Computed example of a mutant assay.
Amino acid sequence: MSSITSGAPVSAAAPVASGATPSQVLPQPAERRSTTTDRQETPRRYLMCPPAHFEVSYAINPWMDPAAPVSRERALDQWHALRRVYEGLGHRVEVIDPVEGLPDMVFAANSGTVVGGRVLGARFRSAERADEAAHYRRWFEANGYADVTMPVHVNEAEGDLTWTGRLLLAGTGFRTELAAHAEAQEALGVPVVSLRLVDPRLYHLDTALFVLDDQGPDPLIAYYPPAFSPGSRQVLERLFPDAVIADDTDARCLGLNGVSDGRHVVLPLEATNLAARVALRGFDPVLVDVSELRKAGGGPKCCTMELRD
């Protein structure tokens, strides 16, 4: 594996071998925005599911092609590497057992939203994934969560529900129903802002937007404006005037499907443009190879449900 030394240009990133420890992109201090203070990570707790039964046998999003070859072994290597990244950064990873016949169960983010110990489960739009919701619900109940609500309306959890630390951004347009946003507010007891997605490639909110810093008085996000309706763009501009703006190159590799702990930002290996932008804002990008998992439409965030107890 070729590593990226401190101060090396982000564009110099070499491919990270599957299963290897990804490189960090660390800009020189002079390259960082002068108004940026030192970023502070906060310990996180995640729920993940190994892709032991991973395959692409159906197509429920534009990234899936059942005719294309898929390597389960490579997907497992990439998943284990992602888990090691989180644990290496000091975060705790819980694991739910995979279930045969549910190849997309690896995408844990779609099966629950946890804020303040309250859990809102999932209700999938596609029949192929419907059974995942009950397995995750049982995990929550077996692990001490007393307040678990299962939605009536289609709700694909953190795929379309993003907690900023102050309010919940809720996506609709392709998967999660608008009525589910009101359900989320009632179940989780937090304010909800609805956003409409318009690009079929970016069918979940977590493919078009993610939170970089949820700890301060002013949350910081990164997003790709063309993924949203004109009105939703205006809402995002008003709420997050200092946001990091991604480009089409980032979107084409699901680069917005990232995970941040307030300092380290885990991104797909190919998202070098976005990595450069967040590095200039004082964050430390960590690039991971998720190319096999992306064949099913997933990236780092799709594989990662945050347990906010």
Results as ranks from 00 to 15, higher is better:
Q185F: 08
Q185E: 15
E186Y: 11
E186H: 12
E186Q: 13
E186C: 09
A187D: 06
A187W: 08
L188T: 03
G189T: 12
G189W: 11
G189K: 12
G189A: 15
V190P: 03
V190S: 07
V190H: 07
P191S: 08
P191R: 04
P191L: 07
V192T: 06
V192H: 08
V192L: 02
V192D: 10
V193S: 04
V193R: 13
V193L: 11
V193A: 04
V193F: 08
V193M: 10
V193P: 02
S194M: 15
S194P: 14
S194K: 15
L195V: 12
L195M: 13
L195N: 13
R196I: 10
L197Q: 14
V198G: 02
V198H: 13
V198K: 03
D199G: 01
D199W: 08
P200K: 15
P200D: 12
R201I: 11
R201M: 15
L202Q: 12
Y203L: 07
Y203M: 11
Y203N: 14
Y203D: 08
Y203W: 03
H204I: 05
L205Y: 01
L205F: 07
T207L: 00
T207K: 01
T207E: 02
A208Q: 09
A208F: 06
A208C: 06
L209P: 07
F210E: 01
F210D: 03
F210Q: 05
V211D: 04
V211Q: 04
L212F: 04
L212K: 04
L212C: 02
D213W: 05
D213Q: 01
D214K: 10
Q215G: 09
Q215N: 08
Q215E: 09
G216P: 00
G216A: 04
G216C: 08
G216T: 07
P217K: 02
P217S: 06
P217L: 07
P217I: 02
